[in-house]
Write a protein that binds this DNA or RNA. Structure first.
Lengths: 343, 343
DNA sequence: TTTACAAAAGCAATCGATTGTCGAAATTTA
DNA sequence: TAAATTTCGACAATCGATTGCTTTTGTAAA
């Protein structure tokens, strides 16, 4: 395996009988280089197929033009779409992405963070895992002078840049939609309340009930039903109540909504006439089920782009541009068959 | 933003009144360090919370313990699953993943490759974009002494490590299954034949026809129908033939199979009784459609792990282990409702 | 012609970790 | 006890790019 020897600034310097410092300055378009020699250097660099050695540059500068991303799962549609958006925007700026998945484990998340700190990434973008119980590892990121950006699943107390969805509002709209469609008893499948996104969605649910003067009933609120299996389980429980709900808002995810739908189908309960179902996240499958599932789109790719832009605005711009610390994106209710009761 | 000054081997050396070289050797568990001093060094390193500066190490060693991944799209289920498998296996070995997407563009693919070469990654894992017309950029990777591993969509002529599916065999089994279910006229939606995976699937289709003594009819083979829209378009054309097919094998992807299904539904053609449909890739949605779609599972996560292991076996092991250059994974036919004609 | 000043280029240190070479000390062998 | 061999650790160079400081060169003003 014969490896081409890469040309260095010293090779260029030697060839032109000047010093490496001048070459460096010319390549970086700094002052104190004669225009003529600069052109000569650039020309020679091109001829010798010079490529800056990023490893050397990284060491010297202490910057890596690399952004670390930590998500619970790479292959979850929402996250992979955020990554798509991130990759797109950062690539254009010559940045690279190092991607880690926490697998919803706090332990692994800490390891990922430490790895990224060790890698001297310039920025860490994270959506915390569900069992994140403290955030000293994130504080550690900040202490290392690394820009930290939280998105979606954020820890509110931590003062960082944040890109989120307006979960409460979206949730309220979804529930309002259900009420307006004539559903009377609306159940809520809620996620681990330790995560703000889930408690916000619950708040939106309660707000909608209040707005329409509907009493909240605790038997209709099922804790911790955030996977397909747990959603199915919760649905069985709900539908066997003496006074069962006529709609279920799976505020945790489309997967739990899918669990609801499958149980309804198995029990031969008609959707949407006997039971309305609303999910969350606009997973691609929601428009393919029968009936298709009403859900909430989070503009995930756009979210990724927004995160990237936030970073660049905050760190690259020389002019003093005041950027907001938190950007909230308004999700959109996608009404499909599973909740259309009225013609 | 106050940044902690990281401790270096010089700090440790100074504190213990020895030289940095000894510290380095101790930390790397090399010879020529007294056991006692080694222990002292390790202890002091721990006390001072020493972390090796990877940037310096990378420069010196010319290795980065980083693997670059180039895929057409990150958010395509197959690819994100391969990445999951890769991440999992490489993370355990202390390797990091830099991820790029080519967006099915040859241009962008070349750019990605160049970026990764510049980043001095130790290995590049790639599934080429559909319009890859030459492979000088991949040759370039090899010339730089970087390990190259192709997977799924490979360029056969290029001698690299390869991890693929046995597309021909899987395809043949799928078509055989259709025939055994009693379908007589089986159409094929084929992908760009420039990619081996697609020509292999076509070969499998033809092989199955031959095996069952069924004449191949060119009007039943539709070129370049590899997206949902193109699949739908092809289906409209096929179903309006004087003698239309009674089954369609969307060998390109489940997305094109979905296009077939939607057109069939729209034309009120019953699946599977009037039309059998088989897709490829086992996208999650295939079990959610009505009817659910028969497809082929590629063991994508396992594929990712296999790629990682192949790399480690080829590069890390000191003992001479002879590893195969190409690993072919046998995909599995997943029979679902869309092709079950016989009880 | 001399002085002043700015532009251009060189020098050398730096970013930390790694490693070949060499001398000193410790241990073994004759 | 002397000679031979190991073991240990120090020294210094190296990986390339960057940059503060200094020197040289060139031009304009006095």
């Amino acid at each position: 395996m014969k490896t081409k020897k890469r040309t260095t600034i010293y090779d260029i310097a030697e060839k032109l009988n000047i010093t490496a410092s001048s070459v460096s300055r010319a390549l970086n378009n700094r002052n104190y280089v004669n225009e003529a020699t600069k052109q000569l250097i650039l020309k020679t660099a091109a001829e010798l197929n010079y490529k800056r050695n990023i490893l050397a540059s990284n060491l010297r500068m202490g910057k890596t033009k690399t952004i670390g991303v930590v998500v619970p799962r790479i292959n979850q549609n929402f996250f992979s779409n955020v990554i798509v958006g991130l990759e797109d925007a950062t690539y254009q700026q010559g940045y690279n992405l190092i991607i880690c998945q926490s697998n919803e484990s706090h332990e692994k998340e800490i390891q990922c963070i430490n790895t990224l700190i060790n890698q001297h990434v310039d920025c860490i973008v994270i959506s915390v895992s569900v069992d994140s119980n403290d955030y000293s590892h994130l504080q550690n990121v900040i202490d290392h002078g690394i820009q930290l950006i939280q998105f979606d699943r954020i820890i509110d107390e931590l003062e960082t840049l944040k890109v989120i969805n307006d979960n409460e509002q979206a949730s309220m709209e979804a529930v309002s939609h259900l009420i307006e469609q004539g559903y009377k008893r609306i159940a809520l499948l809620e996620g681990p309340q330790g995560l703000a996104i889930f408690s916000q969605r619950k708040a939106g649910y309660l707000k909608a009930l209040k707005k329409y003067h509907i009493a909240q009933e605790s038997e209709l609120i099922i804790e911790n039903a955030w996977t397909k299996e747990l959603g199915a389980q919760a649905t069985r429980k709900l539908l066997s109540l003496p006074n069962p709900p006529d709609a279920i808002f799976a505020s945790t995810s489309d997967f739990s909504a899918l669990g609801v739908l499958e149980v309804a189908n198995a029990m031969n309960i008609k959707v949407p006439t006997q039971l309305g179902i609303c999910g969350y996240a606009n997973e691609p499958f929601t428009e393919l089920t029968t009936p298709s599932i009403t859900t909430i789109d989070q503009f995930s790719v756009y979210m990724g782009k927004t995160i990237a832009n936030l970073y660049f605005q905050e760190n690259e711009n020389k002019e003093v541009v005041i950027t907001p610390k938190t950007i909230s994106i308004m999700p959109k209710l996608i009404v499909r068959s599973s909740t259309i009761k009225k013609g």
